[in-house]
Structures are given as structure tokens and as C-alpha cells.
Computed example of a mutant assay.
Amino acid sequence: MSRLHFDFGCGSLKLAGSLDTAPGSTGLLIVSGGNELRSGAFSGQSLLAARIAKAGFPVFRFDRRGIGDSEGENRGFRHSAKDIRAALDAFRALAPQVDRVIGFGNCDAASALMLMGGEGFDGLVLSNPWTIDDDAGDTDEPQHTPEAIRSRYLEKLKNPAEIARLLRGGVNLRKLAAGLLGAAKSAPQTSQLSQEMRAGIADFSGSVTYLVATDDRTGQLFESAWGKDDPRIQRCLGAGHAYVEPSHQDWLKDRILEVIRA
């Protein structure tokens, strides 16, 4: 196993890519979310690629246009299908033994794969898909779902220390009132983006696995928009958005390997 760094073409532009080599005929293509480099948050994608390759399967990562070492303008995840297609072509050229490719993306990378209908992939692993419309709010952080707020307050009410803190006046009443109002709201309406994602993935013939980190607001909002009863959803209890804890990293690796080996 070795790691190769190179440039590949996307139209007239050059994109930066990395390939962790392995002999397997099924490969993993990792699409970065947000404006992250191909190494991922806290080098999480780089570590994940090495572990998947060690298990015998090649892994391709890349920086989309305008990110990291890649040329061009960063136009966001909604306009990244061309980059993903170019990465797929480069992956197949550099690892000619690969006859089956699984796509993995976290956050809006998962959304990008869904919007392009999984074109060119044989299976998808979609983690914490981003479902918030671009004009949904003034903050980059998604808001808690009413269900998550209710769960949080129920846990506090079970804690005698929290009750004592409230009686001592140690609770910000304005924040408490805002939280209670949030908990009383009904489930958020389905976003336009989530509708487009659902339509995009509807005709995909390969396998689809959704992963949700239960402590991640993006994952919580995805479940609210998508429906928790989808049998393809698997949940990593207590995990945050980037799966930074070692046990959560193991869980993520194992779920991806299950799909690759299927």
C-alpha cells in the first residue's frame, strides 16, 4: 500500500487528488464536504483512507475546484458534479483493476452525491446529509430540531442538580424561555434542498446507506426532513459531525467496509 499525490483534469483545469493504493477491485471515492481539503476535518479523511486501503481497497480523494491545491472557482456543493465525475474518471484510470466504486460523503458532500443521482457509482454511503436551504438563516450552524430540544430539557429535568440550579436562580430565564418555545414548535417543513435530494436519488439503482451521528445537528435535521423510519439509516450514538472520537472513527470505517464488501 502507498499514497500517491497528483493532478488530474477537470475540463481545462487541474484538480489535486490522492490515491491510497490497494489491490481490491472495489474502490472508495471520498467527496469532501463544505470547503474542507481532501484531508478532511482533523485529517479524518486521510486517516479513513489509509485504514480502508489497509483492509485491501483503494481510496481516492480530491480537492474540488477552488479548494486547496485545485485550480478554478469554488462554486459550492451544488455545482460540484463535474468535479466528482472527473475524479471518478481519474480513479478508474489510475486503478484499472477497480470495476466497482462506492461514493462516500459527509454533510453537503453527501447532498452533492444525491443531487447528481449517484451517477457513475455502484453504491453510496451518505453521512449527515445537509438539508438546509441556502437562505434558511443568518448562521452557518443548523438549528436544533424541536425533538432534540425536548429531549435535552427532559434530560435536565431528570437531573436533581439542574433542578437545584433553577431554584437558586442559576438559570438564564430568557434562554430558558427561548428553549421552551423551540421545544413547542412542530417539526420543520421539508426544505427545497431535501426535496431535490430525494428526487435526485430516487432512480439510483445501487445500494444506499445513510449514516447519522446522533449528536450532530445536521444529522438530526436530515432525519427530521427525510423520515426516521427509513431502514437504510444507521446511527452512531453520541457521535459528532466529524466522528472525531476513536470509537466513532471505528464505527464509520466498519460501516463503509460493510458496503464495500457487500
Rank of each mutant, 00 (worst) to 15 (best):
Lys14Met: 12
Ile52Gly: 12
Leu113Val: 06
Ser151Ala: 12
Ala148Ile: 02
Pro96Leu: 05
Lys185Phe: 09
Leu113Ile: 06
Ile149Thr: 13
Lys185Glu: 15
Leu154Gly: 14
Ala112Pro: 11
Glu196Lys: 02
Lys158Leu: 02
Ala90Met: 07
Pro160Lys: 01
Gly9Phe: 10
Val31Met: 04
Gly179Leu: 05
Leu181Phe: 13
Gly40Trp: 00
Ser25Val: 07
Ser111Phe: 02
Gln249Phe: 12
Pro246Thr: 13
Lys14Cys: 10
Ala95Trp: 12
Gln220Gly: 01
Val212Gly: 05
Asp122Tyr: 02
Gly66Leu: 03
Gly11Glu: 13
Leu257Asn: 02
Leu48Cys: 04
Gly66Arg: 03
Arg198Glu: 15
Phe204Ile: 01
Gly117Ser: 06
Ala239Asn: 04
Phe77Leu: 07
Asp250Ile: 04
Ala95Tyr: 10
Leu28Ile: 11
Gly72Lys: 11
Glu71Ala: 14
Gly118Lys: 04
Ser70Gly: 07
Gln45Gly: 11
Ile102Leu: 11
Arg65Lys: 12
Ile67Phe: 06
Ala161Arg: 03
Gly34Met: 10
Ala53Ser: 13
Asp108Thr: 01
Ile30Ser: 02
Phe8Ser: 00
Gly219Asn: 03
Arg165Phe: 09
Ser205Thr: 14
Tyr243Gln: 13
Pro96Ala: 09
Cys10Arg: 15
Ile102Val: 15
Asn74Met: 07
Gln249Glu: 10
Arg168Leu: 11
Ala148Trp: 08
Ala177Asn: 08
Asp215Gly: 05
Leu124Phe: 09
Thr26Asn: 00
Arg61Val: 05
Val212Tyr: 02
Lys185Arg: 14
His79Thr: 11
Arg65Ile: 08
Ala183Asn: 12
Trp251Asn: 04
Glu245Pro: 03
Glu155His: 11
Asn128His: 03
Phe91Asn: 01
Glu73Asp: 14
Ala81Phe: 01
Leu211Val: 12
Gly118Cys: 01
Tyr210Leu: 03
Pro96Cys: 06
Leu211Tyr: 08
Arg232Lys: 12
Lys54Leu: 13
Cys236Thr: 00
Pro129Met: 02
Ser43Thr: 11
Thr139Arg: 08
Leu176Tyr: 13
Val212Lys: 03
Phe77Ala: 05
Gln192Asn: 12
Ala225Met: 14
Ala184Gln: 09
Pro160Phe: 00
Ser18Thr: 09
Ala178Met: 11
Gly17Ser: 09
Gly44Cys: 03
Ala22Glu: 02
Ala262Ile: 04
Lys14Val: 09
Arg100Leu: 09
Ala90Asp: 13
Leu173Asp: 08
Leu173Trp: 05
Glu196Leu: 06
Val244Arg: 15
Ser191Thr: 15
Phe42Glu: 13
Thr218Met: 09
Asp230Leu: 08
Gly137Glu: 06
Glu223Tyr: 03
Ala148Met: 10
Asp69Lys: 00
Ser80Gln: 10
Arg78Thr: 11
Phe42Met: 13
Arg150Gly: 06
Arg61Ile: 07
Pro142Gln: 00
Lys158Phe: 00
Asp229Val: 09
Gly206Lys: 01
Asp99Ser: 15
Ala177Pro: 10
Val212Ala: 06
Tyr210Cys: 04
Gly227Val: 02
Tyr153Gln: 05
Ser32Asn: 10
Ala93Pro: 13
Val98Ile: 01
Val212His: 07
Gly40Lys: 01
Glu162Pro: 06
Arg261Cys: 15
